[in-house]
Computed example of a mutant assay.
Amino acid sequence: MAAESPAGGPDRAFVVVVHDPVTDEVDAYGPTGEWDALLDAERRRRELDAEELDDVHVLLVPLAAGASRASSARPAPVVVAEPDGS
């Protein structure tokens, strides 16, 4: 039985990507299901905000099933929150 996403469709794999533009460090967490990845991304955004690291980006990136590295049709990342808090 396939897991259900919050939208009710089949669960897709996602990776949470955290990028610090000051140090240019990138960390990735996952892959996990959509709901778990969203909760993880929101938690990381709150923790960064609490540390006043508003310039650090938190992205929720869907993984395309069967996509190769050469594929030009990649899903766009979802920005959890803009650095300015919007």
Rank of each mutant, 00 (worst) to 15 (best):
P75F: 12
G33W: 01
D55I: 12
S86V: 13
S72D: 14
A65C: 06
L60R: 01
E82D: 15
A13L: 13
T23C: 03
R74D: 06
E52W: 11
L60S: 01
A13Y: 02
A13F: 08
Y29R: 03
A37D: 00
A28K: 08
A81G: 12
V58Q: 02
A2N: 12
V17T: 14
A73N: 15
V15G: 05
V78E: 05
V79W: 01
L60H: 02
E42Q: 10
L53R: 13
R45C: 06
A41V: 09
R46Y: 10
S72H: 07
R69A: 15
V56Y: 00
T23A: 10
A41E: 01
E52T: 06
R46Q: 12
A50F: 08
L53T: 02
T23N: 00
E82M: 15
G85K: 07
P31S: 05
E42R: 09
G85F: 09
T32A: 15
A41L: 05
E4P: 01
L48Q: 04
S68G: 15
D55W: 11
L38G: 07
D11M: 07
R43L: 11
D40S: 08
H57C: 09
D11L: 00
S71E: 14
A41C: 07
E34Q: 10
A73K: 11
A70F: 15
R43T: 14
E51R: 12
M1T: 13
G66L: 08
L39H: 02
H57D: 13
S72Q: 08
V15A: 05
P6G: 04
E82P: 04
P31N: 05
A41Y: 00
E34V: 04
P75L: 13
R45Q: 08
L59V: 06
V22Y: 05
W35H: 10
G30N: 05
E34P: 00
F14V: 02
V80S: 07
P83K: 00
Y29C: 08
L38K: 01
A2G: 09
D27E: 13
D20L: 06
G30W: 02
D54N: 13
G8Y: 05
S5K: 05
P62H: 03
S71F: 12
V16H: 01
A64V: 13
V61L: 04
P77S: 07
P75R: 07
P83S: 03
E52V: 10
G30D: 06
V26D: 02
F14K: 04
D84E: 15
A28D: 11
E51T: 10
V61C: 08
V16A: 05
P6M: 02
A73R: 10
A73Q: 11
A70Y: 07
H19V: 13
P21S: 06
E25G: 00
G85T: 09
L60Y: 03
V78L: 15
A13K: 11
A73W: 08
D54P: 03
